[in-house]
């Protein structure tokens, strides 16, 4: 069986940062596994600017931020396994890895989980009605537009005004789509003020607060939603051919379910808790990486 001192699951901002710190602490046997074909996690699909102000002193795009992290990684001897899914982790400190043509077991001494988040989906909300095509999570829409360069729809309604919801509202506008509105159940937008200004105000996209989606309409493709005003209870039909849900992020820890208390396990970045900005996730991951690297000397 293969053996590695430090195994890191996920090559996003947290995984890369943790790896570099662990290396700098003196650990010389580190492997990162990531299911994607390119490193960087969600950074490559975040083509907007706004990353890295506190770390690099300038505003970078997601891909540029990833480049900086990769430049730091390239001066280390960390082994990066892409297109590699970590299928499971067990008590005896082994992980099961799978990639094209090869399923293998790896024994490790420490594991850093840096698996980021998954998005909440519409299925988790008390929304009823049909289940037509044309409903996407914001991250899924972002990946499809920015990395696959595909067209998702014309008349777009966005549910949720977190940063991702607002950023996608702007992105659809830039694609020439009509963004009908961003609905938000709270009394105030959910994301950062700068994103509200840059993504919503500058593009004149209406933010409609104290509203949510109650019912989905449409047989084949979505044709509209019944939205509800949470204060008055009044209902309103909003026609759309695309619904993008930005309902928030859930730390993705399924891989270590039942193992959370293991002394050899640490959580880095957004799978530990959801950070507002990537710099915070990365700096937490650096601390985790340094601590793991030191402990393995």
């Amino acid at each position: 069986m293969e053996h590695v001192k430090l195994l890191i699951v996920g090559a996003g901002a947290a995984g890369l940062s943790a790896a570099v710190s662990a290396w700098d602490a003196g650990c010389r046997d580190i492997r990162i596994a990531d299911r994607a074909s390119a490193p960087g996690g969600v950074l490559p699909q975040c083509i907007h600017r706004g990353f890295g102000l506190s770390t690099f002193g300038e505003e970078l795009s997601g891909p540029s931020y990833a480049e900086r992290l990769l430049a730091a990684l390239s001066s280390t001897g960390v082994h990066l396994s892409l297109d590699t899914e970590v299928l499971s982790v067990s008590h005896d400190k082994t992980a099961l890895l799978s990639r094209r043509g090869c399923v293998s077991r790896v024994r490790f001494e420490r594991l850093i989980l840096a698996s980021g988040c998954r998005e909440k989906t519409i299925g988790s909300l008390p929304v009823f009605g049909t289940r037509p095509a044309g409903i996407f999570t914001a991250g899924q829409a972002q990946e499809t537009i920015n990395l696959r360069h595909q067209d998702l729809g014309r008349e777009v309604l966005i549910l949720g005004s977190g940063d991702l919801g607002m950023i996608m509202a702007r992105r659809f506008s830039l694609e020439g789509k009509h963004v009908i509105a961003v609905l938000e159940q709270a009394a105030h937008y959910g994301g950062m003020a700068r994103n509200y200004h840059r993504c919503m105000e500058m593009y004149q996209i209406p933010l409609r607060c104290r509203m949510t989606v109650r019912k989905i309409h449409g047989q084949g493709r979505i044709s509209g939603v019944t939205a509800v005003h949470l204060d008055s209870g009044e209902q309103e039909y909003i026609a759309c051919d695309t619904l993008v849900t930005a309902l928030g992020l859930i730390p993705e820890r399924a891989l270590v379910q039942g193992l959370e208390a293991s002394p050899w396990l640490s959580l880095a970045g957004n799978c530990c808790r959801v950070y507002d900005i990537v710099d915070s996730a990365a700096s937490q991951a650096q601390r985790i990486g340094h601590e793991a690297g030191t402990s393995l000397l």
């Binding site: 094209r100 043509g101 090869c102």
Partner: peptide, 12 residues
């Protein structure tokens, strides 16, 4: 064995 014989069975 399956992934070795048919590589696509290793791709998740």
């Amino acid at each position: 064995r399956l992934a070795a014989a048919e590589p696509e069975y290793g791709e998740i």
